[in-house]
C-alpha cells in the first residue's frame, strides 16, 4: 500500500491529539474513516469541512468519499449542535404510546423542527427510531440521559432549564 504522508492537524487544538492517536491505532488505513469521524465528532461535537479535509488527507481517502460517508450516517453532524440535545424516540413502541405528541410539543414550544437547532443555539432536537428501551416508552434522551415513560409536559419541564441564563442543565 502506498505510504500516505500524514498531514499536519488543522489547528494546534489539543483535541486533535485524540484523533491522531485513534487514526494511528488503525494504521491510518482508509477503512478507518468512520472510526476517525467518531473520534472527531467526540472531540469537537461535529464534523466541519476542515476536519473532513484532514481525515481524507490523513487516510488517503477522496474528499467526495469522506463527504459521502459523513452524510450517509445520521449520527454524524456537519453543523455545530446546540448546547443541549433532546432525542425523542419514535420507534414502534414509542410511536404507539405517545412519542409523536412529545415531539410536536417540543417543536411548538421551542419553535424548532426535528433535526434542527434552536435559533439561539440552546437545543438540538433529534428523533430516533428506537433506542432499545421500549419498556420505558415513550422515551426521550436528554443530554445522553435516557428518560421514560414521559409525558409532553414532563419533557417540556425538564427542557426549561436549557433556556435559562446562564448555562442551564436539563435536570
Amino acid at each position: 500500500m502506498p505510504h500516505v504522508p500524514t498531514p499536519p492537524a488543522p489547528s494546534a487544538d489539543k483535541r486533535w491529539k485524540l484523533v491522531t492517536t485513534s487514526l494511528r491505532r488503525q494504521g491510518n488505513a482508509p477503512h478507518a474513516l468512520i472510526e476517525g469521524m467518531h473520534a472527531v465528532q467526540q472531540a469537537f461535537g461535529h464534523l466541519e469541512p476542515a476536519s473532513l479535509r484532514y481525515l481524507a488527507a490523513a487516510l488517503g481517502v477522496p474528499l467526495s468519499k469522506a463527504y459521502g460517508v459523513a452524510t450517509f450516517y445520521h449520527h454524524f453532524v456537519l453543523e455545530p449542535p446546540g448546547a443541549h440535545t433532546c432525542v425523542v424516540c419514535l420507534g414502534t413502541a414509542c410511536h404507539l404510546k405517545g412519542g409523536p405528541a412529545i415531539l410536536s410539543a417540543v417543536e411548538r414550544a421551542h419553535r424548532v423542527k426535528a433535526g434542527q437547532t434552536t435559533a439561539g443555539g440552546e437545543l438540538s432536537l433529534l428523533v430516533a427510531r428506537c433506542i432499545g428501551v421500549c419498556s420505558l416508552a415513550p422515551a426521550v434522551v436528554l443530554d445522553g440521559d435516557i428518560q421514560g415513560p414521559c409525558t409532553p409536559a414532563q419533557v417540556l419541564e425538564r427542557l426549561a432549564p436549557c433556556f435559562e441564563e446562564p448555562e442551564g442543565s436539563p435536570r
Binding site: 477522496p62 474528499l63 467526495s64 468519499k65 469522506a66 463527504y67 459521502g68 452524510t71 450517509f72
Partner: peptide, 28 residues
C-alpha cells in the same frame, strides 16, 4: 480522480464533487 461521489441517503441522495463544493472549484 474520484471527484464525484454520492452524498446523503435515500431519496435525499445526490451526487457531489469533493466536499459538495462548486464543481468549478474542485481541487481534484
Amino acid at each position: 480522480a474520484h471527484t464525484w461521489d454520492v452524498a446523503g441517503r435515500g431519496v435525499k441522495a445526490w451526487v457531489v464533487t469533493d466536499l459538495a463544493e462548486p464543481w468549478g472549484e474542485s481541487s481534484t
